[in-house]
Nucleic acid binder design. Structure first.
Length: 436
DNA sequence: TCTGGGGTCCTAGGACCC
DNA sequence: TCTGGGGTCCTAGGACCC
């Protein structure tokens, strides 16, 4: 038996904890570069603001709605997430953190009234963290996701199709079969976890419109007509667990740092700065994971939405001399790749660095040192660790490679973040000051 | 006259998720 | 003011091996 707990409108709820005046108002959080909406309060959803709707469109469409738009503050959300997850873990013996705002908890064998226990955890999170959340309980992960959906809808719009007593916490296993089927019938197939835009279109063509149609599908047919992925979803909806519970997160297989620019870039120099910075950040993530990379991929492309502009998109994969997490080696390789793919005459909109073919840093393939300039790995690692400690203590960017650029204002490529809120919980300098 | 059977590994592209 | 960023998994097809 699984529980799925997730924060309601998580990013907006985090912002509201520190600015209670935002409660009851339409609030949205924007993507990097203040591009489009990535989180919406219920009031914003009621205005018809869609996920990923570009901010300029929203403003033009709803100039007088009193919408509050905030730039994404991932440092804050990450810290609030850690706090929420720590309390959520109390729901059962093991937890899988699935994303920044949701986790599965294996509640198999937990004694007592599961629903009452879930309500207590919810209240504790609301009280201690200040973020509202919903909890769904069911025999499989896919059904737990649906139970969570029911809990949220019953809270937002009690009555039909989901009764008020299922608000906030919904244990699907306690819902009678005929009522359950009425829930399934009231839900479109595309709402199901794992059924996206393409598959739902294909399902519709086969006459599968509601979740009930999907539940009644023969898994063998699901596999033949679609894929093993759809088959698993169907089986999960029928109550057979097909998705592993991963309380020990598997090591990542790739690490990326990519950004769209605040203003388009046309020359090599600022691109080199940006790519150096992205490579530095990616290398840092890699060290945090305890991994090393064997390949660096760098890419640039123009803005694909500006169809009237000349388009250009290229990437280069550069093998590393030996697997490493050394910032200097990774930056050098990324820059080498960049110089290979750069062509003047285009308005470059986005660039990124990806580290591929990752391995465990503790498993090292020995080799004969036949070159004079072979890097001294232990010293390289010490240098990297020392830089990380200094940056951890004095702030990110205290020490950096000169390649990433030094001229503050000259860094025109940095993203726009016009309405960034303070890092309330992680930065002493951002603490509010009370004046007597 | 005319070309086996069984397998692995890699890659690109598609689909999905939050 | 004009469209995010970071991931995963699956599949088909090609190259290659014996």
């Amino acid at each position: 038996m699984y529980a799925l707990l997730d924060g309601n409108n998580f990013y907006v709820s985090c912002e509201r904890v520190f600015r209670p005046s935002l409660r009851g108002r339409p609030v949205i959080v924007l993507s990097n570069n203040d591009g489009c909406a990535i989180a919406r309060s219920n009031e914003a959803k009621a205005l018809g603001i869609a996920m990923a709707e570009p901010w300029p469109y929203i403003k033009r469409r709803l100039p007088d709605a009193g919408i509050v738009a905030l730039s994404a503050n991932f440092t804050l959300y990450g810290d609030m997430s850690n706090r929420m997850m720590a309390i959520a873990a109390g729901l059962g013996p093991s937890q899988e953190i699935y994303s920044i705002d949701e986790c599965f908890i294996d509640v198999t064998g937990v004694p007592g009234d599961l629903v009452a226990r879930a309500h207590k955890v919810r209240e504790r999170i609301a009280h201690w963290i200040g973020v509202p959340c919903g909890i769904g309980i069911a025999p499989t992960k896919t059904l737990a996701k649906f139970a969570n959906h029911v809990a949220k809808e019953a809270d937002r719009k009690p009555g039909a199709p989901y009764p008020a007593h299922l608000a906030q916490v919904c244990n699907l296993a306690a819902v009678p079969q005929d009522e359950l089927e009425s829930f399934f019938e009231a839900t479109e197939a595309r709402e199901v976890w794992g059924i996206g835009r393409q598959i739902s279109k294909q399902l519709e063509a086969e006459g599968v419109r509601t979740m009930l149609d999907l539940v009644r599908m023969d898994p063998v047919v699901a596999r033949r007509r679609f894929s093993v992925v759809v088959e698993r979803t169907v089986r999960e909806l029928q109550g057979t667990p097909c998705m592993a519970f991963e309380d020990q997160p598997a090591p990542r297989k790739q690490v990326a740092c990519t950004r769209a620019f605040g203003d388009p870039v046309t020359t090599l120099a600022p691109l080199e700065e940006a790519v150096s910075e992205y490579a530095t950040r990616a290398a840092f993530k890699l060290r945090q994971d305890g991994s090393v990379a064997a390949e660096v991929l760098v890419f640039v492309h123009t803005n694909p939405f500006r169809t009237h502009e000349k388009q250009y998109a290229r990437s280069a994969t550069v093998p590393l001399r030996r697997p490493t997490a050394d910032t200097a080696a990774i930056v050098q390789s990324a820059l080498r790749g960049l110089r290979e793919i750069f062509r003047p005459g285009f308005r470059i909109h986005k660039a990124g660095v990806m580290l591929l073919d990752l391995r465990d840093a503790h498993v090292e393939q020995g080799e004969l040192d036949l070159e004079d300039d072979a890097p001294d790995e232990p010293r390289v690692r010490k240098l990297g660790a020392a830089m990380d400690r200094i940056n951890d203590r004095f702030g990110r960017g205290t020490l950096q490679l000169a390649a990433a650029g030094v001229g503050g204002d000259a860094r025109s490529w940095t993203m726009k973040q016009q309405w960034r809120t303070p890092q309330y919980t992680t930065n002493w300098a951002h603490l509010p000051v009370a004046h007597a």
